[in-house]
Design a protein around this nucleic acid. Structure first.
Lengths: 348, 348
DNA sequence: AGTCCGCGAGAGAGCGCTCTCTCACCCTCT
DNA sequence: AGAGGGTGAGAGAGCGCTCTCTCGCGGACT
């Protein structure tokens, strides 16, 4: 009731600043700052006094003040760029989770952190760009999974340091990491060929996705090299349902099928279901290979043989590339392509 | 070769500041600031001039400067606290992904963002706490999945605003959101009872996890209420393999089993495999229910009946609670419990 | 017509830190 | 022994913004 705010009377314990540390330790603010930031050229005795002072007054540096003058925040924007309206649900996909894990782990070794942005609308894209432009982050990592994403170009034109996950669809002079999708598909083709499959089909992904295209053409070329000039093709949209539909259609067209390569595991799971429903045994009647080495691939019976991509390593490298660019703004753009690996399980 | 850095000669286009905007618009810096921050009490004419000035000189506010004086960053630390050494791989679990999605979506409506921290070692825990104490974030969201996590207490004792996902294992005066795990288990029990199951088992999670305990006791109590006083219990560790092992053991102990509740979907998938290997038909011989409504639950044959938790909504609410706490530091701690839902599919 | 009130605008004081520049000192080399 | 170089410490100038305080003006009320 009668709580009086007497500004003059309350000494008001401020949070201690570097100035206080300096006074307590009997050194200048500059020296205190050097100790706090781990610079080497400080006398051991003084360093000790500063450290004691920090402990005794409970000093905690202020990040905003440091960022204001150093123009570095130690933060990287991790922009997940789904197609418009894909909202937060995209994160349910372990694909994003694994990338986040790779990025965060890499950053934390350098005492840095990531802030996660969702760019699934024009406004969200602008916000993501603005974050970096306002100095809320030092640079950006763009993970875009759909074709013709305007985001990479926006960052490029704004002169904001950025590295992409996956090759930009219209090519752009900007660094990126990607998987050799065609090699992955070739791995699948090799496997199928080695098993003696001669009537082969593939369930491809959306035609506008570079990764999907590479997986398709890579598979076709590799099968051709194995003496199988024609490959049945059905399209899916990376969901299990679409895989099931595609497989059913394929079975109608080519009942004598003995090998199938699905452009991702989810479609492979759907295909497996269609195959089993049609009374085909996998892998005895039909060999089946997926792509991604996702969790579902390990849970089916038979377990899926699939192509794995080193997402964490790719994410870590992407992060390093951004950090290199941050350290040297003259660093030229560079692609970095990773090799996929065949994971042999039971379905092929 | 002879590129000379003449500091004195280059006018060096600085990035424009609020001062520049004010000058250009012919107003004071304070007024420009008001317009930038969308304050209402500004004359319409002046506002327009300021907006024009911003556009014409390409002004972008500086986040660090604003944070320095306002003591708000608009950032929330999202701390994923796995058990020590669980590293980045934890993110592969869609559980984290969905939470991240819920948090990020909620924050962005308020023009805020989240920075993801991984707290799986003593150092990482300190770093996470330090981030907030240094003003790198306004508060913290702690998602901890293992018992006796020291993190909540650390934040509480440091006086750092924080809200938890899941009830802290030794109880603490701190806000949290959680699922009524016992109710979820009861939903499963009801379903099994309704199908006429009389010889029932459950595959429980790790005994030290509060959520696992609640699911077990909730199931036992509900079955008892349905006139089934004894429930066979096997332990798993939330992996498919452990579920398969547990199911095999259960089948040996109680071959006449007709209903099984697994404490999560992954274990249910493993159980399904064991059941099918043992020649039992699901759901005809044995009804099976999982928990989580994760992706694998939708991919098995038969598809899993399971209990779903509204993770995104819980994450969003957790975020709101933190924001409320940030707006009113006197806000008392409060738990918020969400209701699980039975998802009827094919396995029960 | 005079006074009071309310509201919009400007002035200015920092927020806490980094970093360059300068200086003092000591050691080494000639 | 003197000059030069290297190293560590201090001084001080901001970084760009927010926010309180003050002031001036116009309308309403007496």
């Amino acid at each position: 009731m009668s709580q009086i705010r007497s500004g003059a009377m309350t000494p008001a314990r401020r949070t201690p600043t570097l100035e206080d540390v300096a006074r307590e330790a009997g050194v200048s603010r500059a020296t205190a700052s050097r100790v706090v930031n781990g610079q080497e050229n400080v006398d051991a005795g003084l360093r000790l006094r500063v450290i004691d002072a920090i402990a005794s007054i409970g000093y905690v540096p202020n990040a905003a003040a440091a960022a204001l003058v150093s123009r570095r925040t130690g933060t990287v924007a991790l922009v997940m760029s789904g197609s418009d309206g894909s909202a937060g649900q995209a994160f349910a996909d372990p694909f994003f989770g694994r990338i986040i894990g790779g990025v965060v782990t890499c950053l934390r070794d350098r005492s840095m952190r990531a802030t996660v942005q969702l760019a699934d609308s024009a406004k969200a894209r602008n916000d993501a760009l603005d974050l970096v432009r306002r100095g809320g982050a030092d640079g950006a990592l763009l993970v875009s999974t759909h074709a013709n994403d305007p985001l990479p170009r926006m960052f490029l034109e704004a002169g904001v340091p950025a590295v992409l996950f996956a090759r930009p669809s219209p090519r752009l002079p900007i660094s990126y990491v990607d998987l050799a999708h065609d090699q992955g598909a070739a791995l699948a083709a090799d496997r199928l060929a080695a098993r003696g499959c001669r009537t082969v089909a593939t369930i491809a992904g959306p035609a506008e996705l570079p990764a999907a295209i590479d997986r398709l053409t890579g598979f076709e070329h590799a099968m051709e090299a194995h003496g199988v000039p024609y490959v049945h093709v059905a399209r899916g949209n990376f969901t299990a349902e679409s895989g099931e539909r595609a497989m059913t259609a394929l079975l109608a067209t080519a009942p004598d099928l003995d090998g199938v390569f699905a452009a991702n595991d989810l479609m492979a799971v759907g295909a497996l279901r269609a195959l089993q429903l049609a009374g085909r045994s996998v892998p005895d009647d039909v060999a089946l290979i997926g792509f991604d080495d996702s969790q579902p691939a390990q849970l089916t019976s038979p377990r899926l043989t699939t192509i794995s991509q080193p997402l964490e390593a790719m994410a870590a490298r992407m992060t390093e590339m951004l950090l290199e660019r941050l350290a040297d703004s003259a660093k030229p753009p560079e692609p970095q392509i990773f090799r996929p690996v065949l994971v042999e399980r039971e379905s092929a």
